Simulated scan of single mutants.
Amino acid sequence: MSTARTTGTASTAVIIVNGRGQYLLHLRDAHKPICDAGTWSLVGGGPEGDESLDEAIARKILEETGLTLPDVSPYTTTTARGPYVTEGNIHLYTAHWDGDARSLPVTEGIMFAWFGVDTMEQLSMCPWAHAAITSHHAERPVPPVPAPRPAHGHGGAGAVKNVIGAHLFLERDGTTLLGRRHPDVAFAGGAWHALAGHVERESVRACLVREAREEAGLVIDPADLELVHTVHLLDDHEDAEPRIQLFFAASPWTGEPEVLEPDKCTAWTWWPLDSLPETTVAYTRTAIDGIRAGTTYTELGWGGRDASVERRTR
Rank of each mutant, 00 (worst) to 15 (best):
Arg5Thr: 11
Thr7Tyr: 05
Thr7Trp: 01
Thr9Tyr: 02
Ser11Phe: 05
Ile15Trp: 09
Tyr23Asp: 05
Lys32Met: 13
Lys32Val: 12
Asp36Thr: 05
Ala37Cys: 06
Gly38Gln: 04
Gly46Arg: 12
Gly46Trp: 04
Asp50Thr: 11
Ser52Val: 02
Ile57Val: 12
Ile57His: 02
Glu64Pro: 01
Thr68Ser: 13
Leu69His: 10
Leu69Asp: 02
Val72Tyr: 04
Val72Ala: 06
Pro74Met: 07
Tyr75Asp: 15
Thr76Lys: 06
Thr77Pro: 06
Ala80Gly: 04
Pro83Trp: 04
Thr86Gln: 08
Ala95Phe: 01
Gly99Lys: 10
Leu104Asp: 02
Pro105Ile: 03
Thr107Val: 10
Phe112His: 06
Phe112Thr: 05
Val117Asp: 11
Val117Pro: 10
Glu121Ile: 02
Glu139Ile: 00
Val145Ile: 14
Pro146Asp: 09
Ala159Gln: 07
Ala166Gly: 14
Gly174Arg: 06
Ala188Cys: 08
Gly189Phe: 02
Leu195Met: 13
Arg201Met: 13
Val204Trp: 08
Cys207Tyr: 01
Ala212Trp: 06
Asp224Cys: 08
Leu225Ser: 08
Val228Ala: 11
Thr230Gln: 12
His232Ala: 14
Leu234Asp: 00
His237Trp: 15
Phe247Val: 14
Phe247Ile: 13
Trp253Gly: 00
Trp253Lys: 00
Thr254Leu: 07
Glu256Asp: 13
Trp268Tyr: 15
Trp270Val: 06
Thr279Ser: 14
Ala287Ile: 07
Ala287Leu: 06
Thr295Pro: 05
Trp302Pro: 07
